[in-house]
Nucleic acid binder design. Structure first.
Length: 365
DNA sequence: TCTGGGGTCCTAGGACCC
DNA sequence: TCTGGGGTCCTAGGACCC
């Protein structure tokens, strides 16, 4: 019987900034796009717990976060300190934490900079697993001055949900016989894979909690949601994978850019497209790939309508000139009425490379 | 409120092949 | 006259995750 833990750093980016800048300690902090006095177009990556008390959270538009900060200032509370993300720094801290974990746990799956799955089956019992997690949390606090929340359960799904229920600095152990009772009262949104759409869909059918979801017949979920419905049926019962994914191979590499102002200026857009091609290709090669076969162009209009155009080459290439030519060919129709009949201004361009080829596998297809 | 940037996976139709 | 069945690839869009 497997014992899996999910370790999740609390408000990771903001916590690192707070630790690195002691003068900010205790202040509300948000890491993300530049708010530009309320005119910024990006979103927050992370808000620390002081900022969350103002209602800020990750993925919130900075423009809205700015308004909430101003409201707090008018109430006489400290305004939010907005910081740009420093990913190199977070990667460095993440690597150190991971090394610390790996020194005590042989099987670890990285799941982003701020979370990981740990196979604790080797401890032999939930009591020993809990004790090991306590040690890990303490080691992370001692070495890095950061807190983590940990969930332990019979599989990745339960561990992940458990790590989320008592944040920050939580440790939640769910034994196999406790899984049903643990999940039943939770909102369906806590299930990984259930986003705003699925939540609304289920709510419209009177289903709000995992317990309620569990009363829905398998065939109903299947007919409503297809294959995803069958997965949901299992998730509602706390069934999930026990095996960790120890190695990961990128399937695509891409770059995109949202402009400060929506535009249809051909010169500007072509220059940015050129740049995106350059960056995407550079990263492709840096990742050790030899080439790509598919180019995906993304265009987002000012009304947020987003379209993609794809072209697959008969054979792989690494040529920057070829990439730019293909990207431009996909993009040009958007500059005139062929693909843009209402002459909508463009908000974002993106270039993504797929069907990536490693050295030595260039000959196949 | 007005929505980043990096990704993965699924669906569905049409082309094409056997 | 009226239209098989299975498989794979390509393309476009959408939900979701960190």
């Amino acid at each position: 019987m497997a014992i899996i833990a999910h370790l999740d750093m609390d408000a990771f980016y903001a916590a690192v900034e707070e630790r690195d800048h002691p003068e900010l300690a205790g202040l509300p902090l948000a890491v993300g796009a530049d708010p530009q006095g309320g005119r910024g177009r990006g979103v927050l990556t992370t808000a620390n717990y002081a900022a969350r008390r103002y209602g800020l959270h990750s993925a919130m538009p900075v423009s809205r976060a700015w308004k909430l900060s101003e409201a707090a200032r008018r109430r006489g509370e400290p305004p939010v300190v907005f910081l740009p993300p420093n990913f190199r720094r977070y990667e460095e801290v993440s690597r150190r934490i991971l090394a610390l974990v790996r020194a005590r746990v042989p099987l670890v799956e990285e799941a982003g900079l701020d979370e990981a799955y740990l196979d604790l089956s080797f401890t032999g019992s939930y009591d020993k697993a809990r004790e090991l997690c306590r040690e890990l949390k303490e080691a992370i606090r001692r070495q890095e001055g950061l807190t983590a929340s940990v969930g332990v359960g019979p599989n990745k799904l339960v561990a992940k949900i458990a790590s989320d229920v008592r944040k920050p600095d939580g440790l939640t152990v769910v034994r196999p016989e406790e899984v049903e009772a643990f999940l039943a009262p939770l909102p369906v949104r806590r299930i990984p894979g259930v986003g705003p759409k699925t939540e609304r869909f289920l709510k419209a059918r009177g289903i709000r909690t995992v317990g309620e979801l569990r009363t829905v017949p398998r065939e109903d979920l299947h007919s409503w949601l297809g294959k995803w419905g069958l997965e949901l049926y299992d998730k509602a019962r706390g069934r999930g994978r026990e095996e960790l994914t120890l190695t990961w191979e990128p399937k695509s590499v891409g770059e995109q850019e949202t402009f400060a102002t929506d535009t249809l200026e051909a010169d500007f857009l072509c220059r940015r497209l050129w740049h995106l091609c350059h960056q995407a290709r550079r990263r492709l090669l840096a990742e050790g790939f030899q080439g790509f076969r598919t180019v995906v162009l993304t265009v987002r209009f000012h009304d947020f309508q987003t379209v993609t155009r794809t072209h697959t080459l008969p054979e792989a290439t690494a040529s920057g000139r070829r990439l730019r030519a293909e990207a431009l060919r996909l993009f040009l129709p958007f500059l005139d009425r062929r693909e843009n009949p209402h002459r909508k201004a463009i908000r974002l361009l993106g270039v993504r490379l797929e069907k990536l080829v490693r050295p030595g596998e260039g000959a196949e297809r």
